[in-house]
Simulated assay, not measured.
Amino acid sequence: MKTKNVFKLAFLIAIGLSSCKNKNPLPDPLEAGWKGEAVCEVIEENNELRVLKCTFEPGVGHEKHYHNPHVGYTLVGGKFRITDHTGTREVDVPTGYTFRKDSITSHEVLNIGETTSVYLIMEFK
């Protein structure tokens, strides 16, 4: 009888721990937007990959969010203020720029330039 209860308890703990895995208190890039408006849309999604297209008009940003490991490509570049774990900086992102992150990361951005900037984000599942 006691052995059954121990196994039940171990099973419930294992379920509880596995349900906590990969939980992030921040929204993902699709859920996050700017002042209640979406900035990203799903272009393609399957069991291995999700591709987002994110568009930022001047003065529009992306509220703090997390990314799963991903590769990004800049369709149309621009000037951004980026805040992440390293601090806040301003960057000019050129058209055709490719970037990659191999771990879960988080940041927020704001288009401080005068033109609309567009990105593809390919997230691995």
Results as ranks from 00 to 15, higher is better:
Met1Trp: 09
Met1Thr: 09
Met1Pro: 15
Lys4Pro: 06
Lys4Ala: 13
Lys4His: 11
Lys4Glu: 15
Asn5Gly: 12
Val6Asp: 10
Leu9Ser: 14
Ala10Gln: 07
Ile13Asn: 08
Ile13Met: 14
Ile13Gln: 09
Ile15Pro: 12
Leu17Gly: 13
Leu17Lys: 01
Ser18Val: 12
Ser18Arg: 07
Ser19Asn: 05
Ser19Ala: 14
Cys20Phe: 14
Lys21Arg: 09
Lys21Ser: 15
Lys23Ile: 15
Asn24Thr: 05
Asn24Pro: 07
Pro25Gln: 09
Pro25Ser: 04
Leu26Met: 10
Leu26Ala: 09
Glu31Ser: 13
Glu31Leu: 09
Glu31Val: 01
Ala32Phe: 04
Ala32Thr: 03
Trp34Thr: 00
Lys35Leu: 12
Gly36Ser: 03
Glu37Pro: 04
Glu37Ser: 11
Glu37Asn: 11
Val39His: 05
Cys40Ser: 10
Cys40Arg: 04
Cys40Glu: 03
Glu41Cys: 02
Glu41Val: 07
Glu41Met: 03
Val42His: 08
Ile43Met: 14
Glu44Gln: 10
Asn46Leu: 02
Glu48Pro: 01
Leu49Tyr: 03
Leu49Lys: 02
Val51Trp: 00
Leu52Glu: 06
Leu52Trp: 04
Lys53Asn: 09
Thr55Asp: 08
Phe56Ile: 03
Glu57Thr: 02
Pro58Thr: 01
Pro58Ser: 01
Gly59Asp: 04
Gly59His: 00
Val60Ala: 03
Glu63Tyr: 05
His65Cys: 07
Tyr66Trp: 12
His67Tyr: 05
Pro69Arg: 02
Pro69Thr: 01
His70Phe: 11
Gly72Pro: 09
Tyr73Arg: 03
Tyr73Val: 00
Leu75Thr: 08
Val76Glu: 15
Gly77Pro: 11
Gly78Pro: 11
Lys79Leu: 06
Arg81Lys: 15
Ile82Cys: 04
Ile82Arg: 07
Thr83Ser: 10
Asp84Phe: 01
Asp84Gly: 03
His85Phe: 11
Thr86Val: 09
Thr86Ala: 12
Thr88Ser: 13
Arg89Phe: 13
Glu90Asp: 13
Pro94Ser: 01
Pro94Met: 03
Pro94Thr: 00
Gly96Ser: 07
Gly96Phe: 04
Tyr97His: 11
Tyr97Trp: 14
Thr98Ile: 13
Thr98Trp: 12
Thr98Met: 13
Phe99Gly: 11
Phe99Cys: 10
Arg100Gly: 12
Arg100Tyr: 15
Lys101Val: 14
Ser103Met: 06
Ser103Asn: 09
Ile104Asp: 13
Thr105Arg: 05
Thr105Asn: 08
Ser106Cys: 07
Ser106Gln: 09
His107Gly: 02
His107Phe: 06
His107Leu: 06
Glu108Ser: 06
Leu110Tyr: 08
Leu110Met: 08
Asn111Gly: 05
Ile112Gln: 04
Ile112Asp: 08
Gly113Tyr: 08
Gly113Leu: 02
Glu114Asp: 15
Thr115Leu: 00
Thr116Ile: 02
Thr116Asp: 10
Thr116Lys: 11
Ser117His: 04
Ser117Val: 04
Val118His: 10
Tyr119Val: 01
Tyr119Phe: 15
Ile121Trp: 03
Met122Gln: 09
Met122Asp: 09
Met122Gly: 12
Met122Phe: 11
Met122Leu: 14
Glu123Leu: 06
Lys125Ile: 05
